[in-house]
Design a protein around this nucleic acid. Structure first.
Lengths: 242, 242
DNA sequence: GCGATGCCTTGACCTGCATCAAGCCGCGCC
DNA sequence: GGCGCGGCTTGATGCAGGTCAAGGCATCGC
């Protein structure tokens, strides 16, 4: 038992969760029981429907959360309504701008989402007492920074075709639940609407739609019911990412 | 003396530097003397000319550095030669992908650059022993993530005009050495060539040049000797950033 | 069943930026 | 001086992707 707990502790899987092993299976047990005491009665689970605003842009930060299920999109807007999705968070990502006074982004539920929410002060206090926790959060932050910079290449230098292929490739890696590691293909449901995809890629929905059609006609993917995607050969898709 | 040191320690200014107070003024003194002992004989200063490669993409990470002077551009490339600048680092930023096996970006000197280099192992050991140092590095990483996401909006959703204005605005805030805080205008030298600016903005050099000309004709900026920029009214520039 | 609604696709047309090409300017070198 | 070269600007043209508009298809409430 202690051995299993240590396994989780050493893995890259994040963070915070209360002594709620039974209810939040998977993400819990990251902290040693004694470290958890401080949070044990301060976390709670929340459910959200697609479109729900989890954190508002320029809003005071009062709590952090862990994504337990679903996909969260982080967006930023210009005054005139133009929007850009600047990140996607999948379970079991940590959610929230640590140590910031106000959020720089809006966090919206892209699908049905479950969160495990903890008050800001409680987590920050725990971090202050527990450098290993801060280190794990640092690892996630560094990974997010890498991902953001990867995406900047996509936004700045890829064609519409390459952008859509890159998006599908990204989702294939994150969202195919049953995919064996060496598998050639992938099957998954898109967690985002065409409008969200367009905002993620810096395109319009029409262009996204047309490029999806082209990929379909080229036999790189098949789409059913708008959201269900099959990729027979991921390698072919990867080759179209630029 | 202890009070002054504590001031620096508590500020947001990073990181690592040896007991070289006299030679690296400004960035030093962040660490307590006893914390510095481990690094005191392991850092060294290096100079680089514009264009010099400081860290290669997909290269093993053997050292970290602190930017002492100048501007460093972080770039990523596609196989076919397309390039994207994914970040700019100004003194006194920390440079290097912490805890990573290989660098995800190429770091190039954009201007004359001085670095204070420290071997990877030495710094990581110091971090392990010193949570306060990791916390300061965490703060810089979070700031870089915020900046990357801001820039994603620029890349994905702004027009060429707005991109160029955004770039000039960014540089005005970082690179005007004498600007009083409430000043209306700014004067500075561009640390990047037109080609670099284009790669930062996801544009071509021709488009950058044309948009600069437009801003000049509109009276928003004046340019002399290709690199020297004066902005009489920053507010006007900001209004063009979208 | 039937209209309303939301989401997606497709077509026709337009425009902002890329591309191609020429020329300018400053600088170092012979 | 004159010549070559690198960095920048300007002009002419083309096209990828945006815009506008219409229509398909599933879902929902009545």
């Amino acid at each position: 038992m202690s051995e299993k707990r240590r396994d989780v502790h050493n893995s890259d899987v994040p963070i915070l969760c209360r002594s709620c092993e039974a209810r939040h299976k998977g993400m819990c047990g990251v902290l040693e029981p004694e470290e958890l005491v401080a949070l044990a009665r301060r976390t709670h689970k929340t459910r959200h429907e697609p479109g729900a605003e989890l954190i508002g842009e320029s809003t005071e930060i009062r709590s952090y959360a862990n994504v337990m299920r679903g996909v969260v999109k982080l967006t930023k807007g210009l005054e005139d309504g133009r929007q850009q999705v600047v990140g996607l968070q999948f379970a079991p990502d940590f959610l929230g701008r640590l140590f910031g006074d106000e959020s720089q982004t809006t966090a919206l539920a892209a699908s049905d989402v479950d969160l495990c929410v903890v008050p800001r002060g409680a987590l920050e206090q725990l971090i202050a007492e527990n450098p290993a926790l801060e280190h794990r959060l640092m690892q996630q932050t560094l990974r997010e920074l890498d991902e953001a910079r990867d995406w900047m290449v996509t936004l700045g230098r890829k064609t519409a075709q390459e952008k859509v292929a890159s998006f599908l490739h990204l989702i294939a890696l994150h969202a195919d639940p049953h995919r064996p590691d060496g598998a050639l293909g992938a099957v998954f449901d898109l967690p985002l609407s065409r409008a969200d995809i367009a905002d993620f890629l810096g395109l319009t929905i029409e262009t996204v739609s047309r490029q999806m059609t082209k990929l379909r006609q080229a036999g790189v993917i098949t789409i059913t019911a708008n959201r269900h995607v099959e990729v027979p050969n991921l390698r072919r898709l990867a080759d179209m990412c630029g």
